[in-house]
Simulated assay, not measured.
Amino acid sequence: MTTEVNNQRIQISLDLSPELYQTLNNLMQHLNGDNAEVLIKAIALLEVAVDAKQKGKHIWIVDDNQNLETEIVGI
């Protein structure tokens, strides 16, 4: 059995504020990636957050000692 991998890409155009564009560029530098990689990772993270919320779970940021620092809300 063979499986074909579909590598088709769809190009989109975005209108961003200068501030959001700068944020995107900063993230590209931190990830050593490109715009597409940043957006793919951002969408994947949002997908995890939305899925967790639908299951009644919460997204938190904790420090090295597992102390709650921030709860992500509004997703």
Rank of each mutant, 00 (worst) to 15 (best):
T2E: 11
T2H: 03
T3H: 09
T3C: 08
T3K: 11
E4D: 07
V5R: 12
N6Y: 05
R9C: 04
R9I: 09
I10W: 05
I10P: 00
I12F: 03
I12G: 00
S13F: 01
L14A: 06
D15F: 05
L16T: 10
L16N: 08
S17G: 13
S17T: 14
P18L: 14
E19R: 11
E19H: 04
L20H: 08
L20W: 09
Y21A: 15
Q22V: 03
T23Q: 11
T23H: 06
L24P: 09
N25H: 01
L27C: 03
L27N: 01
L27G: 00
L27S: 04
M28V: 06
M28I: 12
Q29T: 03
Q29I: 11
H30Q: 14
L31C: 02
N32C: 01
G33H: 05
D34F: 05
D34A: 09
N35M: 10
N35Y: 10
A36Q: 09
E37M: 11
V38K: 05
V38S: 04
L39C: 01
L39E: 02
I40A: 03
A42W: 08
A42G: 08
I43C: 10
I43R: 00
I43T: 09
A44M: 12
A49F: 07
V50G: 01
V50L: 15
D51T: 15
D51E: 15
A52W: 01
A52T: 07
Q54M: 14
Q54G: 06
K57T: 02
K57W: 06
K57Q: 14
I59P: 05
W60D: 13
I61M: 06
V62C: 12
D63Q: 04
D63W: 06
D63N: 12
N65A: 06
N65Q: 11
N67P: 03
N67E: 15
E69W: 13
E69P: 02
T70R: 07
T70Y: 15
I72S: 07
V73Q: 13
